[in-house]
Design a binder for these strands. Sequence first.
RNA 1: GGCCCUAUCGUCUAACGGUUAGGACAUCAGAUUUUCAAUCUGGUAAUCAGGGUUCGAUUCCCUGUAGGGUCACCA
Length: 522
Amino acid sequence: MTPKKEENLMIRTRFAPSPTGPLHVGGVRTALFNYLFSKKNKGDFILRIEDTDTERSKKEWEYELIKDFEWLGINWDEGPALQDQQEINFKDYELGYVGQHAPYRQSERKDLYRKYLQQLIDEDKAYYCFCTREEVEAQKQNLMSLGEPPVYRGKCRDLTRKEAEECLSQGKNSVIRFRCPMNQKINITDLVYGKIEFNSDILGDFVIAKDLDSPLYNFVVVVDDHEMEISHVIRGEEHLSNTPKQIMLIKALDLKQPTYAHLPLILGTDRKKLSKRTGETSIAKYAEEGYLPEAMINFIAFLGWNPGTEKEIYTLVDLINDFSIEKIQKAGAIFNIEKLDWINGYYIRKKSIKELTDLLIPYLERAGLIEKRSFTSYLIKATGEEFGRDKLEMIISLYHERLKKLSEIIELVDLFFVSDLSYERELLQWKQMTKEELIDSLRTAIKILNDITDKDFVKEKLEAALMPVAEKMPNRGNLLWPLRVALTGKKNSAGPMEVAEALGKEKTLKRLEKAIELVSRD
RNA sequence: GGCCCUAUCGUCUAACGGUUAGGACAUCAGAUUUUCAAUCUGGUAAUCAGGGUUCGAUUCCCUGUAGGGUCACCA
């Protein structure tokens, strides 16, 4: 049992979420930094499920959380493991574990906690408290109004063991409090914030368990981090004020203190801790919106960290290579969605059309625009037409550079999947064109396009036929703008030739006729 | 209120105590365009305030100010 030297040097980090809701982007950042730090140092990254709060913890959130990390491409060396690699759904969800310290779910480690809890009680370092919540709350309010630290200074501290046992046997409601030593200096050397000193007086006798079988956060975290041999605790700054409590427990239990690194908060636009009030916080929602995992990783990594160079496009692997804890910022960082959009657009542009198409098909299907027919063919739901994968890729390529997030594809390409366009006739008009000029322009376009065979109905050929005529007009827009609007029904879109090609000759001409009809109508 | 943390363009940030305070996003202008996007070029824009220390502070120290976190039988 004597620890080997290598074990002491081993870097082991953990992310310890509680499955009480959707995974928060702040949680992702914490997990990411733990992951990067461990991988950078050839160490292990552990995922531990903190589900001691049985009221709020749900298996379903745990499942979602694991799926989210799978999506992000962050994996762990120890922790819950999906039973098989297959696509699973929540109904079939069952956990196995990988790693030497299983189980990794706190609800399954009760025996362990009880042992440590009992030890503290036996050594009189913890005691039963029978005060009611109301009493404690009133006391706290009173102390706050006096400007004193709002800590527990109750009477149960001095109960003899016998008195306590008596109350217990009477079935009185109780909690277990840590007998926190007074007037002790607690020094933390935080890897991000440096030296921080607390005085133990501000802690009071905090509650460490509801009963022997229901330990609470500050206690279990200490036990588990020790049992799992965590070397570095990297977590959000909101935990900084919990750290002295945990250190006091570590001392009482005579355990080894891990190294701490607290991460600055991710802020909303109101400069407060990011919350639903000021922006979307759930990583799954970002995935749904069509942000790419590599963009999320890249963006989140740069919230409170930078490599110190001007490079800012980073893959997960690059991040592992260049990550260093010294470069972590001390001040909170606002979650700047504009920059995220830019990074996401960048990664979208880096995708091949094939990859992008694969990513986009589910969005088109969900929007009810298309339906998959076979491996390479699809159905336009509005018209019943069948078309091939190559056509789909062609359409998507037109919008490759215009996409900031995947979900935007719908409003961009819907024009290819509807039978009738609807738009205001004013939109057809380019600059100061009269109604007659407009009709004339559309007729010209029809005439030119009609002469082109189906086979030659491709961008280059269309350009060759249309452009010379357009050049002769007072302004190219006189011909091209009405044509483009007639085909797309939109103020902004891809160019008219490529849209015409994607539409095909028949639909192109039909839409031009419709446009003339629309303009002529009185 | 107690304790703790923080402070450079609007935002994310760079700068051995010596730089015309740099970059990116956003924004503005120009180029390119039938529109939008993409791309290229250029511009606007910051050291919270006051004291020290120093030949010299964005940088070190103090005070103030402003923001934030936390004070659960949640994590």
